[in-house]
Simulated scan of single mutants.
Amino acid sequence: MPLPTETDSFAALEPLLLRSKGQGDALIEVLHGAQQRYGHLSDPLLRHVATRLKLPLSRVKGTASFYHLFRFQPPARHRCVVCTGTACQIQGGPALIAALEESLGLQMGDRRADGWVSLSEVRCLGTCSDAPLVLIDGTIGRQQTPEGLRQRLRGLAP
């Protein structure tokens, strides 16, 4: 669904806002619903949520930026996520990050301008016994090596 412009009403979000009765304690639920409906949390969308929930924009943006699952730009076609938890760091995570950054021509946290791929990190994927871990397009790669990771990247469709 395309993102409305600033002058649009964000009508698809209204049922959730009405259900929340304008209560600020529904902020995370509303942000989650907004991202589901519009793909990401744009500045106009965050302003709309702040206005409708009668919250300061700084609180809405601060809450959204605190949680790593919220996006502020459209998702990339391919998403590469490296676990940076302790077990993954000890088992070779830094080498995986270097291989990804070199292979993709990105730095951690970046997204290619054409939207083809993004690179991010997460503190734990919850499978420490299989460290180091890399999540690509929702599929966990266990006990990854830099070469195995480069091979996985070559298999991504353009």
Score class of each variant (00 low, 15 high):
Ile136His: 02
Val134Tyr: 04
Pro146Val: 07
Thr145Tyr: 05
Glu14Asn: 08
Gly126Val: 13
Gln151Ile: 02
Asp43Trp: 10
Met108Thr: 02
Gly85Met: 02
Leu45Gln: 12
Phe70Val: 02
Val122Lys: 03
Phe66Ser: 13
Gly85Tyr: 06
Ile140Leu: 09
Leu31Gly: 14
Leu45His: 03
Leu69Asn: 14
Pro75Ala: 11
Phe70Cys: 10
His48Ala: 11
Leu18Asp: 15
Gly115Pro: 00
Gln89Lys: 08
Ser103Phe: 01
Ala11Cys: 04
Pro15Lys: 05
Glu29Val: 11
Gly105His: 04
Ala50Glu: 05
Thr63Ser: 15
Ala34Trp: 12
Val81Phe: 00
Leu46Trp: 06
Leu18Asn: 10
Ser129Glu: 09
Leu45Cys: 14
Ile140Tyr: 12
Val60Trp: 09
Arg111Val: 08
Gly92Lys: 02
Ser20Cys: 14
Leu104Cys: 12
Thr7Tyr: 08
Val134Thr: 04
Arg123Pro: 04
Asp137Leu: 00
Gln35Glu: 12
Lys54Ile: 06
Asp8Arg: 10
Leu3Met: 15
Glu101Ser: 13
Arg71Thr: 05
Ala26Val: 05
Arg19Asn: 11
Arg52Ser: 13
Leu55Trp: 04
Gly22Asn: 14
Gly24Cys: 14
Val117Met: 01
Arg47Trp: 07
Cys88Gln: 06
Pro75Asn: 08
Asp8Lys: 11
Leu69Gly: 09
Phe70Ala: 01
Arg59Lys: 14
Leu53Glu: 13
Val117Leu: 09
Arg154His: 06
Leu153Asp: 04
Ile97Phe: 00
Gly148Gln: 05
Val122Met: 00
Ala34Phe: 14
Thr7His: 15
Leu53Asn: 04
Thr145Leu: 09
Gly92Tyr: 01
Leu153Thr: 00
Ser42Thr: 14
Leu119Arg: 00
Phe66Thr: 15
Arg79Ser: 13
Gly24Arg: 07
Leu57Arg: 03
Met108Ala: 08
Arg52Ala: 15
Leu153Trp: 12
Lys54Tyr: 11
Cys80Phe: 01
Asp130Ile: 02
Gln35Trp: 15
Ile28Gly: 05
Leu41Met: 15
Gly115Ser: 13
Ala76Asn: 04
Cys124Leu: 05
Gly109Met: 00
Ser65Val: 13
Leu104Met: 07
Leu16Asp: 07
Lys61Ala: 11
His40Asn: 09
Pro158Ile: 05
Pro132Thr: 10
Val122Gln: 08
Thr51Lys: 15
Ile90Asn: 00
Thr145Ser: 12
Lys21Cys: 11
Leu104Trp: 01
Arg52Asp: 11
Pro44Thr: 05
Leu41Phe: 11
Gln23Tyr: 08
Gln151Asn: 01
Gly126Ala: 06
